[in-house]
Structures are given as C-alpha cells and as structure tokens.
C-alpha cells in the first residue's frame, strides 16, 4: 500500500509539466517594510513600503502623492533616521513637511537648479542633476529613505531615464537598505520598482463651505513584486485615506 509521501510524489511527478511542486508548500520570504503612517495604505501594502527597494508613488497633481510621502518620512525621521529629498523641480515645501511631522534637521534637501536661470528652461539639466544626486546619496549609504521627486516632470522627459540607471538604483538601495521613493506622474522604473502606488484625488471636504478641511485620496497599488500573501490569495482593494489641511486642528483616524 503506497504511503501518503509516495502518493504525493507520484501526483507531483504527473503534474510537473503543468504545476511544478503542486503539493509542496512554497517557502516565503519575509520582506522588511516600513509603515507609511497611513493605516489604510499600510493595509493595502501589507505593512508598509519595502525597505531596500524602489517604490513609485504615481498620480497627477493634487492626488496626495506628496502628502503620503511626507507622512512616510515623518515616521522615518521620528525613528531617528536620516532621509533625503532630491527635488528635481524645486517644489518641496518645508512648512508642509514640518506640519506633517518631518524633523527637518534629519532631512537633506537637494534643490536642483536651472542652469539657464529660466523657469521654462529645458528640463534635462535638472533631471540629470537629480539622477546624479540620487546616485551619490545611494552610494553614500546611511539614508533610511531617499525621495526622488519627479512630480512635476513631464513623462516624455522622465521616461527617457535609462533602465540601467534604475537597475543601479535598485541594487544600491538594496545594498544600503534604503527606501527609494520616486514621485512621478507615471511609473518610470518599470521592473526595478518593488511597489508602484497609483494615487488619485477622491473627495474634498470643507467645513461650513468656507474652510477647506482636507481631501480624501484613493490609493491602489499598480504592482507589487514581493508579497507575503499566498499564491492565489486576493489582494485588498484600493483604499481611500484622508489628509487634513495644516490649519485643521481635528484629528482623523
């Protein structure tokens, strides 16, 4: 009489052309994550953004990309870690960062400049500066998170970043255990990105029609390379989250 072990091996051998190791449970890797500071987004991301990987936060303007990123940085700097913001468009607002809880002393801000001094100058120089600065910071190591802010960059320019650059960034981020967040209108890093979050505006909230109290945003993940969910399990649906305005004293969950 065949044992259960023998039967399992026979079944697996029969099905191996279609399902390799059909009855053997697959080993799962545990990926280190860092919480974003937004509970509903963390639920979608199974704990937070991956450490030592590239994460892309994409969406149009006013879709909550920057708010979510600052919330993530607030958690990192609060934990005593050092972060960097590589600002290709010089759009970073220190007041918003401070209001979000980011410890500005723990933040290195790199402001790319227009060589020509013209506001509408060709963006290649700024993009090139941003990539070189990100590369240097990743190679230096010690930063818990680096934000490559291409939020205002037109996709036709940012899409020209070579794949080799993203591969290099991915390897450097992995080696230095740094979360590289790329803010953009669309995803640029392609297969090098561990997580792609798609952000969209959802609803505006006001108080009495006279004060803007905050906005509700929708967040869904476009791609996630590593997951702790078993194969076939359904991922949670997209979540919504609320960001209150700086002047709103009320706290939300």
């Amino acid at each position: 009489m065949p044992t259960a072990q023998t039967l399992r091996l026979e079944i697996e051998r029969t099905l191996e052309n279609r399902f390799p190791a059909a009855l053997t449970s697959m080993t799962r890797s545990i990926y280190e994550v860092a919480p974003t500071g937004v509970a509903s987004v963390d639920a979608v991301l199974e704990g937070g953004l991956p450490v030592g990987a590239i994460c892309e936060v994409t969406g149009p303007e006013s879709s909550g990309r920057t708010s979510l990123t600052l919330a993530f940085l607030a958690g990192r700097t609060e934990a005593g870690q050092v972060c960097a913001w590589v600002d290709a468009d010089d759009a970073f607002d220190p007041e918003s960062a401070a209001a979000s809880g980011v410890d500005l002393k723990q933040l290195l801000w790199v402001r790319c400049r227009n060589e020509c001094g013209l506001a509408r100058a060709k963006p290649w120089t700024r993009l090139d500066q941003a990539l070189r600065a990100t590369d240097l910071l990743l190679q230096a190591g010690g930063f818990a998170a680096i934000v490559l802010d291409l939020g205002n960059m037109e996709p036709q320019h940012a899409m020209r970043i070579p794949l080799a650059t993203w591969f290099r960034f991915r390897q450097a981020a992995d080696r230095t255990r740094c979360s590289l967040l790329v803010l953009g209108k669309t995803a640029y890093a392609q297969s090098s990105a561990a997580v792609v979050l798609e952000s969209a505006p959802f609803q505006l909230e006001s108080a009495g029609g006279s004060v803007w109290r905050g906005s509700r945003f929708e967040m869904r993940h476009g791609r996630q390379r590593s997951t702790s969910l078993p194969a076939g399990a359904r991922k949670p649906p997209a979540s919504t989250w609320f960001a209150s305005s700086v002047w709103d004293g009320g706290r939300r969950a």
């Binding site: 919480p35 500071g37 937004v38 303007e61 909550g64 920057t66 708010s67 979510l68 600052l70 919330a71 607030a74 958690g75 609060e78 934990a79 005593g80 050092v82 468009d89 010089d90 759009a91 970073f92 607002d93 007041e95 918003s96 960062a97 209001a99 979000s100 809880g101 410890d103 002393k105 723990q106 010690g142 939020g151 205002n152 905050g214 906005s215 989250w241 609320f242 960001a243 209150s244 305005s245 700086v246 706290r251 939300r252 969950a253």
Partner: peptide
C-alpha cells in the same frame, strides 16, 4: 547628522502638503 534617540511614531493624521 545628529544622533537622535529613536522615538515611537506620533499617531497623527497625515496632512495635506503643498508643492511650491
């Protein structure tokens, strides 16, 4: 770089940020 003692994250709702 200042060695800052690690603290538990503040449970605060995210704030709407500006892009200048």
């Amino acid at each position: 770089v200042n060695a800052k003692p690690s603290a538990a994250p503040i449970d605060e709702s995210p704030r709407m940020a500006l892009r200048r």
